[in-house]
């Protein structure tokens, strides 16, 4: 079974993240890591491969060339190789553009299953799988909390606003998994050492057959018009527990008259 996992490098959450007021784009200069929810998708891919007894797990991403540093974590967990589409002309791609690039990169891989995590932590997006499935003309099931694959058919359980759905679909299919589906494994030291040697292909837009007019800002259909000054939670604080965290929480609650 061949499983592709779409992953994304994101800026680390926290007070240091900002949008550049000049360009209206996210300032991507800070620390970055693999989108946390993608780890559940990678874990599920590894389990599907293990259950099938053979196969391949390929990580597919669109991002800056240095995103490989983050993506390597998935290789350390056990994925077999990575394909990163990286091209200056792809900067600023929105859903329309990104889904086109990912779909073209995925077509070259012909996977049986395409997996996504439940959201990206940077833009709070939770729609990419539906757009990619549409472009690949594959069935899609999202928010999966239980997954079974047997005889070329998947059966998935997922929570909606009204209860639980059980949905079946034939392979190939696009599946987006909830973070409740599994507990992502930690990379072993051996995995981390071995990750560097696994194939990591960096491809340009033309390598995956995408015309530059369909990627980046040229291929995007949405725009940021303006930004307003920070609002809401002004003086938020983040502390590391040094043994006194409980006392600090109590002091904070007392100060706010909540205890």
């Amino acid at each position: 079974m061949k499983i592709a996992v779409c992953v994304k490098e994101v800026p680390d959450p926290g007070p240091n993240r900002r949008i550049d007021p000049g360009t209206l784009k996210m300032d991507r200069s800070g620390d970055r890591s693999l989108n946390a929810y993608d780890l559940n998708a990678i874990e599920e891919a590894l389990r599907l491969k293990e259950a099938a007894g053979d196969g391949e797990v390929v990580l597919v991403s669109l991002g800056q060339a240095k995103a490989l540093d983050s993506i390597r974590k998935g290789l350390a967990m056990g994925a077999d190789r990575a394909v990163l589409v990286s091209d200056e002309a792809a900067a600023g791609s929105d859903l329309v553009a990104t889904s086109h690039v990912l779909a073209e990169a995925l077509k070259a891989e012909s996977p049986d299953v395409v997996l996504f995590g439940q959201q990206a932590t940077d833009g709070d997006g939770a729609v990419m799988w539906a757009a990619v499935a549409e472009r690949l003309k594959m069935p899609v099931v999202s928010q999966i909390s239980e997954l079974e694959v047997s005889g070329g058919t998947i059966t998935a359980k997922r929570q909606t606003e009204f209860g639980y759905d059980r949905i079946q679909a034939p392979l190939p299919a696009v599946l987006a998994v909830a973070d409740s589906l599994n507990e992502p494994r930690y990379p072993s030291l051996k995995g981390i050492m071995g990750a560097k040697k696994k194939p990591q292909d960096v491809k340009s837009l033309s390598d995956v057959g995408v015309d530059a007019s369909r990627a980046g800002e040229a291929g995007s259909r949405t725009t940021v018009v303006s930004l307003s000054p920070p609002q809401g939670r002004g003086d938020s604080r983040k502390i590391e527990d040094d043994g006194s965290a409980a006392q600090q929480i109590l002091d904070f609650l007392v100060e706010r008259k909540l205890v």
């Binding site: 859903l95 329309v96 889904s99 990419m128 539906a130 757009a131 549409e134 472009r135 999202s142 259909r221």
Partner: peptide, 18 residues
């Protein structure tokens, strides 16, 4: 849950910004 997947699909079908 439903509407988000519909919107994502329509966006790709029509190359329409979402």
């Amino acid at each position: 849950v439903l509407a988000s997947d519909v919107a994502g699909g329509v966006s790709a079908r029509l190359d329409a910004g979402l």
